[in-house]
Deep mutational scan, measured.
Amino acid sequence: KELVLALYDYQEKSPREVTMKKGDILTLLNSTNKDWWKVEVNGRQGFVPAAYVKKL
């Protein structure tokens, strides 16, 4: 599985998104969309802005 690092805090704005804190390590589930990547964090799956994370 591929991991990404949260570069910034992000507060979810819809049920399809997830909240993350700067420094969190997230599991990358899908990065086919250039703007929104699907990740898993704390057992929850959802989208975060691709610009807010970096592949490890």
Rank of each mutant, 00 (worst) to 15 (best):
V18I: 14
G43D: 09
K22F: 05
K54A: 13
G23D: 06
W37Q: 02
L29N: 03
K54S: 12
L56H: 06
K55S: 10
Y8M: 13
R16Q: 13
R44L: 08
E40R: 06
S14P: 05
K1I: 15
L29I: 15
A51F: 09
N30L: 09
D9Y: 04
I25M: 07
E12W: 05
L29E: 03
V18M: 10
Q11V: 15
N33P: 05
A6K: 01
V39W: 00
N30Y: 06
I25K: 05
L5C: 09
D24V: 05
V41E: 04
W37T: 04
T32I: 09
A51W: 10
Q11M: 15
E2I: 13
A6P: 01
A51K: 13
D9E: 05
V18H: 03
L3S: 08
T32N: 13
N33C: 10
F47C: 11
K38L: 15
P49N: 03
Y10I: 01
K22S: 08
N33L: 10
E17Y: 06
D35T: 13
G23I: 00
P15N: 11
L29H: 07
K13R: 12
E12N: 07
E12I: 06
A6Y: 01
V39S: 00
E17V: 05
A6H: 01
L28P: 01
D9H: 06
L5E: 14
N42V: 08
Y8Q: 13
D35L: 14
A6F: 01
K38P: 02
G23H: 05
G43Y: 06
K55T: 09
L5G: 03
V41Y: 10
V4F: 07
K1L: 15
Y52Q: 07
T32R: 10
K38M: 15
W37C: 04
K55P: 13
N33Q: 10
W37S: 03
A6T: 04
V41C: 10
N42W: 07
A51H: 13
E12Y: 05
T19M: 05
D24G: 04
A51T: 13
D35W: 14
G46C: 04
P15S: 14
K38S: 08
L28C: 07
L7Q: 05
L56M: 11
D24E: 12
L5H: 05
I25N: 03
T32Q: 12
L26W: 02
E17A: 05
T32A: 14
L3Q: 11
L56C: 11
K38I: 15
K22D: 03
G46E: 02
K55A: 10
G43N: 09
L56A: 05
S14I: 05
V53E: 00
V4H: 03
V39L: 03
P15E: 14
E17L: 05
E17Q: 10
A50Q: 07
D9G: 06
K55Y: 12
N30K: 07
D24S: 08
L26P: 02
K38F: 15
R44P: 01
V48P: 00
K34E: 12
K1D: 09
V53N: 00
D35G: 09
T27F: 12
N30W: 08
L7G: 02
K1R: 13
V4I: 09
L3T: 10
V41R: 14
N42R: 12
L29K: 04
Q11N: 14
W36K: 02
P15T: 11
A51S: 13
L28K: 01
V48D: 00
L29C: 07
T27L: 14
R16V: 12
L5R: 09
K1T: 12
D24K: 03
A50N: 03
V53I: 10
Y52C: 12
S14C: 09
T32D: 15
L3W: 13
W36M: 07
L56G: 05
L3F: 14
T19S: 15
W36Y: 08
Q45M: 10
V48M: 01
I25L: 10
L26A: 09
E2R: 11
K34L: 10
K21R: 13
L3P: 04
F47Q: 04
E40T: 06
Q45L: 08
K1P: 15
Q45K: 11
E40Q: 08
Y8R: 15
L7C: 08
T27R: 14
V39G: 00
E40V: 07
L5W: 07
M20G: 00
Y8H: 13
Y52S: 14
L28Q: 01
A51N: 14
W36F: 07
N33H: 12
Y8G: 06
L26I: 09
E17H: 07
S31G: 12
G23Y: 04
K34M: 11
L7I: 10
L56N: 04
L29P: 00
K13W: 05
L3G: 03
A51D: 14
Y8T: 10
M20N: 00
K21Q: 11
L3D: 04
E17W: 04
S31Q: 11
G43C: 08
K13C: 11
E2N: 12
Q11S: 12
E2D: 14
P49Y: 03
S31P: 06
S31N: 09
A50V: 06
V39Q: 00
V18K: 02
K21N: 09
D24Q: 15
L5N: 02
A51G: 12
E12Q: 13
K38E: 15
E40M: 08
K38G: 06
A50I: 03
T27H: 12
E12K: 13
K54W: 08
Y10P: 01
F47S: 04
G43R: 05
V48N: 00
Y52T: 10
K21M: 10
L26S: 02
S14M: 08
K13L: 10
K22H: 06
K13G: 08
D35N: 13
V41N: 15
S31C: 10
S31K: 08
N42L: 11
N42Q: 11
K22Y: 05
G43E: 07
T27G: 08
Q11K: 12
T19H: 05
E17N: 06
P15A: 13
V4G: 14
L7D: 02
Q11T: 15
S31R: 07
K22I: 07
E40G: 06
S31W: 08
W36I: 04
A6R: 01
S31F: 07
G23R: 02
K55H: 11
V53K: 00
K34W: 07
F47E: 04
E17P: 04
E2P: 09
K34P: 15
T32F: 10
L29M: 08
W37E: 01
D35Q: 11
Q11E: 15
K54V: 15
G46H: 02
K21S: 11
G46S: 02
L28F: 03
D24F: 05
V39A: 02
N33G: 10
A50C: 06
S14W: 06
A50Y: 02
S14Q: 08
E17C: 07
L26M: 15
L28G: 01
K55G: 07
K21G: 05
G43T: 05
L26D: 00
Y8W: 11
D24N: 07
V39F: 01
V18Q: 03
P49E: 02
K21P: 01
L5Q: 12
T27I: 15
V4T: 03
V18E: 01
V53F: 05
E2T: 12
E2L: 12
Y10K: 01
V18F: 10
Y10Q: 00
Y52M: 14
M20R: 00
K22G: 05
F47W: 15
A50R: 08
V18D: 00
D9R: 03
K21L: 09
S14V: 05
N42K: 10
N33I: 06
N30M: 09
R16G: 13
K13A: 13
K21H: 11
L56P: 04
I25R: 05
I25G: 01
N42F: 09
L7N: 03
G23K: 02
Q11W: 14
T19D: 04
F47R: 03
Y8A: 13
P15Q: 11
R16A: 14
L5F: 10
L56S: 04
M20Q: 02
E17K: 04
R44V: 10
V41K: 15
V48H: 00
V53S: 01
V53Y: 01
V4A: 13
